[in-house]
Design a protein around this nucleic acid. Structure first.
Ligand SMILES: [Mn+2]
Ligand SMILES: [Mn+2]
Ligand SMILES: [Zn+2]
Ligand SMILES: [Zn+2]
Lengths: 165, 165
DNA sequence: TGCGAATCTGCAATTCGTGCAGATTGGCGG
DNA sequence: CCGCCAATCTGCACGAATTGCAGATTCGCA
């Protein structure tokens, strides 16, 4: 999603008002890589603005998502919001639930069977496993971890050439 | 998941009882490719056994999933259950919500960046688009259809050689 | 500065499940 | 075939995550 200043313009342009509640959320979301839930954002927002309502957080997140400034992820449990709208995928820790961005290339080499008649418009990939912090710790926390038959695939990692943000 | 007769043995073996409610659900689920929600199954079950409780449907689905006889899918909205536990992926229609099985090969050729420290255990792919029945019809029904920035990738389809079920 | 549409906030209502407790029943032992 | 009792079932309360409402406020243009 764009920065707070740009969002301010974008909102005004659409006839939407720029309230202090919205400005706070713009700020809390910009560059946020935690993929927070509405509740998590409410906690952050509430710390800086005790009077803000959870309802307003939901409303603003919905608006931003509708404007394409946020992606929303339904992975079981509360919906998580993502300010990073670049095409990318995710890796979710089955123990702590943390979500990390993952960039996947060469999607074109996949051989897909069963799409007969279905017109794909995009695909979402979610890797499941243990995050760095949880590796080595006990079993998964959530119930939905009955993954005994999960295919342990191996994925190639491209040469880690420099990145230019 | 296994057939009703095998499940009956499996349940008895675990000290679990085989009640008429469970037998009915075994039958309704076996070979079911609709990826039904608990509610949908309850509707089917209720037609044949008016007295069955929704609670029992939930309970049985949970048990079957825990035994690895069913996979459960959290894709937003109600959890969907899948008797097909072979490793596979899904294509969901953004208009009617229908889910179709999709088999993906060559996962190993994917170049994945960002998994630093994360230990992947498996991946789930969900293709989004329009199913055969909905192709040509209006826009998506559900709200979560703000997919203006969805990457329209192209996937290769392997030679449709015969299948031997 | 004023006004009115857009917002905000608090709370009721929904949707999807899960926790409980009392009434039933499957399945083994006698 | 009979009885027992743990495993189940059913109905309902409760909880989490959202969404619908309505009255009180406030942003932003005139
Ligand atoms: Mn992301
Ligand atoms: Mn399936
Ligand atoms: Zn973790
Ligand atoms: Zn469809």
């Amino acid at each position: 999603m764009r920065n707070p200043a740009e969002l301010t313009s974008a909102f005004r342009a659409r006839g939407l008002k720029v309230t202090p509640q919205r400005q706070l959320l713009f700020r809390l979301l910009h560059g946020n890589t935690a993929h927070p839930s509405a509740d998590a954002l409410y906690a952050l927002a509430h710390a800086e603005m005790p009077g803000i309502s959870l309802r307003t957080v939901y409303q603003t997140l919905t608006d931003l998502a509708a404007m394409g400034e946020l992606d929303s992820l339904s992975l079981g449990g509360a919906t998580r919001f993502d300010p990073n709208t670049d095409p990318h995928h995710h890796a979710q820790c089955s123990r702590c639930g943390a979500l990390h961005d993952v960039y996947v290339e060469q999607l074109g080499c996949l051989e897909v069977r069963g799409l007969d008649g279905f017109t794909p418009n995009g695909a979402t990939i979610v890797f499941s496993g243990l995050c760095a912090a949880c590796t080595g710790l006990g079993a998964p926390r959530a119930a939905a971890a009955a993954s005994e038959h999960a295919p342990v695939e191996q994925f190639s990692t491209p040469t880690p050439k420099e990145q230019s943000p």
